[in-house]
C-alpha cells in the first residue's frame, strides 16, 4: 500500500536506527486495537486515498490538501528523530516529510491564534477501535492533540508523510502525521484530517482520559515520573532479542535541548 518517495536524505548519524520491521510492527494506534501488534494486523485495508487535510481556524488563508498534494506541498526531507513513548521505550526513526512551520506559513495564523489543534480521522467503519469501546482503550474519539503555536512553529516540529523512504504504512499514521520529537509519542497524532489555529488551549485525548497522568505539554522529562512508573530511563528498541535490549538514561526534552527556551520560566513539574 506504500509507495516510494522523492526526498532529500538526512545526514549520516551515529545512532542505530530501529529496524523498519519494528517501526511498522510495534505501534500504539488504538483506533486499530490496543495491542502493539493490532495496528499492523488491522490497518492494512485502511483507505487513505482520497484524503482531505483541512487547515483552518484563526488563519488568513484556510486551505485543504488532497492525498496527492500532501506529498507535493513542500520539498520532502528526511529527518532521523528519536521517538520516546510515555511507556518508557524508544525508537530511532527516519521520517520523511516537511516542517509543520511550512504549513503554518502558508495558512498565515492571525495574531489571535495562540494554539494549534489537531484531529485524527473519525471513521468507525474503518477503525474498529472507534466503533467498539472494548477495542478502543476507553478513548473518546476522534483523537485530538494540540501544541502551543510557538511549539508548532519550532523547526523541529514535523509533519511526516513517510518513513524509511516510503509513504507511511497505515499503522504508522498514514497518510500524514505529526512528529514532535521532544514530547512523548502520544503527542504525535496520526492520520490527521484537520489542523486548526485556535485562541485557547485545545483539549488533548490522553489528558482528557487521565489528567493526572498525561499533561498538555507532555515534554520528555526524566525528573517527572508518570504516577505509575519511572521516566528516568528508557528501553531503546533496536535489533536483537531479549538479551540485547538496551536501557539508557532518558534526557530532558528527549535530548533536543534547542527547545528549552520555549519553556523558560515555566515549572515543568507543574506543566508536565
Amino acid at each position: 500500500q506504500t509507495h516510494a518517495l522523492d526526498y532529500a536524505e538526512a545526514q549520516q548519524q551515529s545512532q542505530i536506527l530501529t529496524p523498519e520491521a519494528k517501526v511498522i510492527g510495534h505501534n500504539n494506534f488504538y483506533e486499530f486495537g490496543t495491542d502493539k501488534s493490532d495496528p499492523k494486523a488491522n490497518a492494512q485495508a485502511f483507505q487513505v486515498d482520497p484524503w482531505q487535510l483541512r487547515v483552518d481556524g484563526l488563519v488568513e488563508t484556510p486551505f485543504t490538501l488532497s492525498f496527492d498534494e500532501l506529498f507535493k506541498f513542500a520539498p520532502l526531507q528526511e529527518r532521523i528523530y528519536r521517538l520516546r513513548c510515555v511507556e518508557a521505550w524508544s525508537m530511532v526513526i527516519p521520517w520523511v516529510g516537511f516542517s509543520l512551520n511550512a504549513l503554518l506559513n502558508k495558512a498565515r495564523p492571525l495574531s489571535s491564534g495562540k494554539y494549534v489543534a489537531f484531529e485524527t480521522l473519525y471513521d468507525p467503519k474503518q477503525m474498529p477501535g472507534q466503533s467498539n469501546p472494548f477495542r478502543g482503550g476507553g478513548i473518546d474519539y476522534p483523537y485530538v492533540e494540540g501544541l502551543r503555536i510557538d511549539e508548532a512553529a519550532h523547526p523541529l516540529s514535523f509533519l511526516a508523510v513517510g518513513l524509511y523512504g516510503k509513504s507511511l504504512p497505515a499503522q504508522n499514521g498514514a497518510p500524514i502525521r505529526l512528529v514532535v520529537p521532544w514530547k512523548y509519542g502520544f503527542k504525535s497524532i496520526k492520520s490527521i484530517v484537520r489542523i486548526s489555529v485556535v485562541d485557547k488551549q485545545p483539549p488533548t485525548t490522553w489528558n482528557l482520559l487521565a489528567a493526572q497522568e498525561y499533561g498538555f505539554y507532555a515534554n520528555v522529562n526524566p525528573k517527572v515520573d508518570h504516577p505509575r512508573w519511572s521516566q528516568a530511563r528508557e528501553r531503546r528498541i533496536t535489533t536483537g532479542g531479549l538479551f540485547s535490549s538496551n536501557r539508557i538514561d532518558t534526557q530532558l526534552f528527549n535530548g533536543y535541548d534547542e527547545v528549552a527556551s520555549l519553556y523558560s520560566g515555566m515549572d515543568l513539574r507543574q506543566h508536565y
Binding site: 510492527g25 510495534h26 521505550w89 535489533t239 531479549l242
Partner: peptide
C-alpha cells in the same frame, strides 16, 4: 522466540 527477536517489536514487554 524472545531471545531470537521473534516476539514482537519489544521482546521485553
Amino acid at each position: 522466540r524472545a531471545g531470537t527477536d521473534q516476539l514482537g517489536g519489544d521482546p521485553v514487554e
